[in-house]
């Protein structure tokens, strides 16, 4: 009852009950994540070690980069189910070039170009050919996977690669793994773009109220293309880091990140700005997923438990914040 009164008389300050509810809605999941962390800290002996915490952060770093891309796309109310397959393809091309002794910056640029090109293609399929992103990106994912297998003939590039390339994924800066630095930079840039620039507002408006955005003169089709292109670019960037970190690249190297990335973003939608894909939520969501994945292994859970947990997280998150997602899945 306090809620409806507050809604009707907007000049009245919200009642304490409403404020508590808002706080729970915004930060409840983050608190849940801390609880998960605490449980693992108590249950697994080596969970809290500095080494293990860095291991988690390294694993989370790829996830954050991929998930940021998915966040951009979903902000414009489009789904990108192709990012993991595109990342595998980009990794294979990048790894193949490095493997065959081409300069690594060429490999990195090629990965970004492939990611960007797939993202752009996704955007054009959605806005020009009017194919729902759910279908379009599923199709391009299949194409990317096929190309990756064709390039490597089914095997993975593995080798002793240029050390300056491997540093991108394995190096340290002042004791901190460089992957953590890349992750932090990517997240900070994403927050900055979404919060402080006109582009961020336009992308949000396109996803939140496309008709209002169009009437206000915002080029909503271009924004959707941008959202999907950024997702592709993040897939390319993540592919470079993953390839450098693994020192190998196979046609399914990044496929694990599809469900994890989606789960991270959807979990993030239950935080900070509930119901809306948002960068801080995505980062925290990815951390929670990373902690879960790591902790489950350390407490000796079977490998398939993780998949079940991811599925449950996706279901619960969407149940909590469904509207944007249904819109993304079922409209053009």
């Amino acid at each position: 009852m306090t809620e409806s009164t507050a809604a009707a008389h907007s000049d009245a300050p919200p009642a304490p009950g409403v404020r508590l509810k808002t706080a729970v809605a915004r930060y409840g999941t983050a608190v849940g994540g801390i609880l998960v962390f605490a449980v693992f800290a108590l249950a697994a002996d080596n969970f809290l070690t500095v080494g293990n915490q860095f291991t988690i952060l390294r694993q989370v770093s790829f996830l954050v980069v991929f998930s940021l891309g998915f966040t951009f796309a979903l902000t414009a109310a489009e789904l990108d189910l192709s990012f993991a397959a595109v990342a595998s393809l980009a990794g294979v091309v990048c790894g193949g070039l490095v493997h065959h002794d081409y300069p690594w910056p060429l490999g990195a640029l090629a990965a970004l170009a492939i990611g960007g090109a797939f993202g752009l293609a996704n955007g054009l399929f959605v806005t020009r050919a009017k194919i729902p992103s759910l279908i379009a990106t599923l199709a391009t994912a299949s194409i990317a996977t096929g190309c990756a297998f064709a390039i490597t003939e089914g095997v993975a590039w593995v080798g002793r690669w240029d050390r300056s390339f491997l540093w991108l994924g394995r190096g340290e800066m002042g004791g901190v793994p460089v992957l953590v630095v890349w992750m932090a930079l990517a997240a900070l840039i994403a927050v900055f773009v979404m919060r402080q620039t006109r582009f961020g507002v336009w992308l949000t408006a396109t996803g939140q109220a496309d008709e209002a955005a169009r009437l206000a003169g915002i080029p909503i089709r271009a924004m959707k293309v941008w959202g999907l292109t950024l997702s592709g670019l993040c897939a390319g960037l993540g592919a470079v880091l993953l390839t450098a970190s693994l020192s190998s690249a196979g046609p399914t190297s990044a496929s694990d990140f599809l469900m994890k990335g989606i789960a991270a973003v959807l979990l993030g939608m239950t935080m900070f700005e509930p119901g809306r894909a948002n960068v801080p939520g995505t980062v925290v969501g990815a951390l929670v997923i990373g902690v879960l994945a790591n902790g489950l292994v350390l407490v000796g859970a079977a490998y398939y438990v993780q998949d079940i947990v991811l599925g449950l997280i996706i279901l619960l998150s969407v149940a909590l914040s469904a509207s944007v997602l249904t819109k993304a899945a079922f409209t053009v």
């Binding site: 507002v201 336009w202 949000t204 408006a205 939140q208 008709e211 209002a212 955005a213 915002i218």
Partner: peptide, 18 residues
Amino acid sequence: LALAPTMTIAQNVFLGSE
């Protein structure tokens, strides 16, 4: 109305011309 309900009053007043 052509407003974006989940955005703020200020964002709506300046929508598209921030």
